[in-house]
Amino acid sequence: MLRLPPIKLVAPTTVQAAAKAIATSDDNARLVAGGTDLWPNMKRRHQKADTVVSLMSIPDLDSIDSANANMRIGATATLANIIRDDKLRARFPAFAVAVASISSPPLRNMGTIGGNLCVDTRCTYYNQTEEWRRSIDYCLKEDGKICWVATKSPKCWAHTASDSAPILCALDAKVRLVSASARRELPLADMYVDDGIDYLAKQPDEILTEVLVPGSSDSDHCRSAFWKLRRRGSIDFSTLSVAAAVWTDDNDVVTRASMYLGAVGSAPMPVAEIDTVLVGNKMSEDGIAEIAHVAHKIARPMDNTDFAASWRGKMTVQYVTAVLREIAGLPQLRMRPRHRLKVV
């Protein structure tokens, strides 16, 4: 079977100690939480590390405070525990739906929210074994010179893979980052860079310690939805995801709106126009159609995951429409429940 290369694993019990460990280790040190992304990548040798610093022995880093006005989730909270939290489910249903759509139950028992937000970008030329990548002489993202998805491209187009990122971005979430020398808080959306290689604005020695979701994003103030396009009913990564949040006043007039697309760019792609189109109006079929049209142009599906890329592009229109209809409380036209996700 595929086996991990030998590594030095350290498991500090405080964030400070972990930050110190990562700062003082050699260049080739990495953080690990649940390991559901890092270990398979290291087995295939496209992510390498001599030292791995685990965050899983830090007590309380996995706590979830969903009763607080602003919800706080510790970085090592597992995906399974997130969807088990009743309060969280009630307040941020679309977030719960997104988390429940990630991989499969055993992987959600291990996978963490911090790991999910930092999860590596993906590409079918890259998520392959060392031997396979030798056969294509590697690619830009790791050890090679050419991007096989777009051979003239100077940049890597590997797609963002996190299913919690688009919805958390739409809900205005913030993250707290801690390094040995500093700590900062930044909007989650600002943590992402639209580049398949350097996809995070976070420094390698910065530890994501918590996610903060403002109370103004919960279901009392805002309606949100998340849809994910994938081949099978479980396991599969998104080949397109759409997350949106819409805030309205007492008269159903939109006061603020936010939308992000997943898996069709190297970062969650903001559909900024949603704000200009919707704000000041009630949600309408026309408005929804206009946003769907804009989103279609923003999405850049590439031939580096499942399904035909051009079809995934067309699906942006359908999925954006579906997400906004769900938020507006309009019936879905033809889409079967099959597309719909649920928290089991």
Partner: peptide, 23 residues
């Protein structure tokens, strides 16, 4: 013009799509 490679597109159980029992 760039490469002689001819490779299996997705030799893994994740990317070679086959239905699960839930399907």
């Amino acid at each position: 013009r760039l490469s002689g490679a001819l490779v299996h597109k997705m030799p893994s159980m994740l990317e070679y799509k086959s239905p699960g029992f839930h399907d």
